[in-house]
Nucleic acid binder design. Structure first.
Lengths: 166, 166
DNA sequence: TTGATAATATTGAAAAAGTCAATCGTTTGC
DNA sequence: GCAAACGATTGACTTTTTCAATATTATCAA
């Protein structure tokens, strides 16, 4: 996933990272592009994704699977359609992801009593177990992603992002 | 690129959007996943990307091309390798993107006087022209993405993202 | 200087992710 | 009751991502 990451664990290189960028904190920080929030969010999500994926490898999960599992564990009983629109996934991608998790018996498709067309996603017991462990990993990844921010700043960031995204 | 966007301009559906989510502001906002900044940044970048791509279609640019063009216009004379690490792109992707833009004579590869292995990216005159127009579009897209935030909040968001990403 | 090692751009292949149209069963609104 | 719309599914296809291999150039130590 990066020039490092040989093949061992995943917790790997967490420290000794003077700057997240490959270059010396990047002489490009002042460029116009670097001021665009579209660019900044893209870079953030790229970093966050890579970090979280590393953390999840030994649970055999990727963040996209994790996201589905998380929603199945949320108690909100989302239908596949709802899940797709929440996660910005095409219905066909949802099918593939749900298939994968269902084959591993982490979640199951339950009939929607309101509408026989739709299927509701619910985590199994082992799904909940795995989610518990996985969410610890993603929490760790988040901690790492946000080390540069104070706790107040972290909250503020969450607030602002939520505001533009919901 | 989306169910809307017939073929006319690009300014299209900017208003009449009670909530950015498909659902009624989403009953999933309270879920644990929705609190993770990895999720929030993913959603932001997804939204921002879609928005910017719409805006750029009639310039025949995607945000990824736009990003390369922007850097070639920045005056920083990035090498391909630098560009790749700045934009989180694999070297082979850089080659493809640069090829595409160079064929359109928007940028060119110049020899790096310091290192004959590397090639420096510089925009042509028409590259600069296109960038000028394109950046207006992405500015508009950003405005739209951030409507929910006050100007101060927008600045704060930029500051926080920059802090975690550089 | 030479020779080993690493770095840059490039190619090509393959896997993953994203997009789209068509279909089946079901629901909704007329 | 019917037509139109909707949710899940399938399959095809494009785009994006990831990786390994290579040629040329740099770097560095002997």
């Amino acid at each position: 996933m990066s020039p490092s990451t040989p093949g061992t664990a995943a917790v790997a290189a967490s420290q000794t990272r003077p700057t997240p960028d490959g270059e010396g904190a990047s002489r490009f920080q002042q460029s116009a592009l670097a001021q665009e929030v579209a660019f900044l969010t893209a870079r953030s999500r790229s970093r966050g994704n890579a970090l979280a994926n590393q953390m999840l490898v030994d649970l055999d999960l990727k963040v996209r699977h994790y996201a589905v599992l998380a929603m199945a564990c949320s108690g909100t009983n989302p239908s596949q359609r709802e899940l797709g629109s929440f996660l910005d996934l095409d219905p066909s991608q949802v099918v593939a992801l749900v298939d994968a998790l269902e084959h591993r018996e982490l979640i199951r498709r339950a009939p929607d009593p309101r509408d026989r067309r739709s299927k509701i996603l619910i985590a199994t017991d082992s799904g909940h177990d795995l989610y518990t462990r996985a969410s610890e990993r993603t929490r760790a990844a988040e901690r790492q992603l946000l080390t540069a921010l104070t706790p107040q700043e972290q909250d503020e960031l969450r607030r602002l992002l939520a505001k533009i995204v919901f």
